[in-house]
Design a protein around this nucleic acid. Sequence first.
DNA 1: AATGACGCATTAGGAGAACTGATTGCTCGA
DNA 2: TCGAGCAATCAGTTCTCCTAATGCGTCATT
Lengths: 298, 298
Amino acid sequence: MLDYKLLAALAAVVEQGGFERGARALGLTQSAVSQRIKLMEARLGQPVLMRVTPPMPTATGRRLLNHMQQVRLLERDLQARVPAVHDGAPQRLRIALNADSLATWWAEAAGDFFIRREVLMELIIEDQDVGLKRMRDGEVAGCVCAAERPVAGAKSIALGAMRYCGVAAPSFIERHFADGFDGKRLSQTPAIVFGTDDRLQHRFAQQLGARDPLIHHLCPSAEGFVKLLESGLGWGLVPRLQVEAALEQGTLLELAPAHPVDVALYWHYWRQGGELLGDLTRHLRQRAGGWLVAPAGA
Amino acid sequence: MLDYKLLAALAAVVEQGGFERGARALGLTQSAVSQRIKLMEARLGQPVLMRVTPPMPTATGRRLLNHMQQVRLLERDLQARVPAVHDGAPQRLRIALNADSLATWWAEAAGDFFIRREVLMELIIEDQDVGLKRMRDGEVAGCVCAAERPVAGAKSIALGAMRYCGVAAPSFIERHFADGFDGKRLSQTPAIVFGTDDRLQHRFAQQLGARDPLIHHLCPSAEGFVKLLESGLGWGLVPRLQVEAALEQGTLLELAPAHPVDVALYWHYWRQGGELLGDLTRHLRQRAGGWLVAPAGA
DNA sequence: AATGACGCATTAGGAGAACTGATTGCTCGA
DNA sequence: TCGAGCAATCAGTTCTCCTAATGCGTCATT
């Protein structure tokens, strides 16, 4: 039998991003956590954490965390059957997803599941494929991301694709594209980009024939993003779901209606994740289609 | 997080059939185990063990044991990936099965799996549906039995049917059935029965038209059983697989070749049982067909 | 380069959890 | 009625595990 006290320390450190934070989460001192980790490493005969900031699990550490996550999910099932097994801590399901999903369909698609099952969600925003890293590290029970290939021990299902479209405020269009619109002109006007490593805009621009690198503002906030667009600061690529209303009202206009960009999204979940996670998976598969489209067009 | 020390105590007590035995298995004193159980019950606010001999888990206890079993299976997977997680205790997979399966096909069908995966099997003989109880109590990782319906949290697959045939020694047949063979005469000759609660013989006799209760010897040993048959002590119903050789050599003869009795067997395993158990399940599904037949006849 | 902030490791020391050993109490079967 | 077997209880002790204080890096600031 593994010593789950030690494992809990490891999990806390990685999830909280530090020994001190982890200690606080466990109601212990930093020293105690340090000792626990050390003891575990002594028993295993190999390190489980790389001492960087924030601490990163080693390959072995990842395996352990991953195991921990699965045991937690089993405990969740048990709690459903033996209510007396009450942890004090409320039920939480940690899930990583990309900001755009959270800003658009997630709440409506998953919300009622969490209400019905009386589980709290703990969402972690991770764009790109960092979410998958969180899966591998056993930090989250599930993950919505664009990568199809599941990590070891997990499965993935296709949820559908998120459709992005290029939009801008009427004033912006008038200012820059009064003489017509094409990729070349587009690449000379300021874009608004969510994060530095966001490549979607470039894909869109390239589709339209642009070659130059984009000049762009950075705005890592979904709400702020749309606000900036509406104020005419630049053009941007946003989930269609997010600007449906703005397009109808005319505060934003679509730049190239014929050139949407679709990003296929996948739901990753632990194969041995217990009933709760299985039910959530079924729920998502059934509901996500309402907001996501069948993938098409790049 | 549950306290797995306490759970381990509960598991040891139930598996070993007593506080003292359980304590020995854990390398503790009986006193310590008693205190652990008590502490667990205090925390849960309800008993987990009925104090009878041997101690039986309560409904809640069963849930906990069942959880424990699943966690153990997950740990097994982990060990495969992180060899340093070495328990000292060798890898064991506890499996309940009926005596006839063990005496015939089990070794050949499952043996190489356990060799290849370097896992020790811990077999528990349980005829009738007691094996299922062991599943429910989380005492075993899997179970071969005649019941189809899986317990909560588990799944079952059909393996095929074990074919039984009525046999007797030539001397016995000459002595009792020289004038012909039918159910009526059969019920007046001594049968050899494996256990008191073994109803197969009766089914066989009834098929042949017998109405009276059988007179029978009792012999709860598969090897001894065949020996007794060969010595002409009585007739018996045995798995065909077990007497193939004897029939060929003529030391035993089939009483009613046209009336076999088939017993469908099912493999029960934990749904969240990890990779090892999943692989074993696949292995069995693939291999069992070589010895078991498609169910037919009664 | 000096300084301070931050984060983890290390150490000594102490509280209390948890174990042992002895005893009591219960239930059976002889 | 006695004794055997088994679990509960209790007192005493061990030793695990935590806290508090301190030390030693790294990094940013001046």
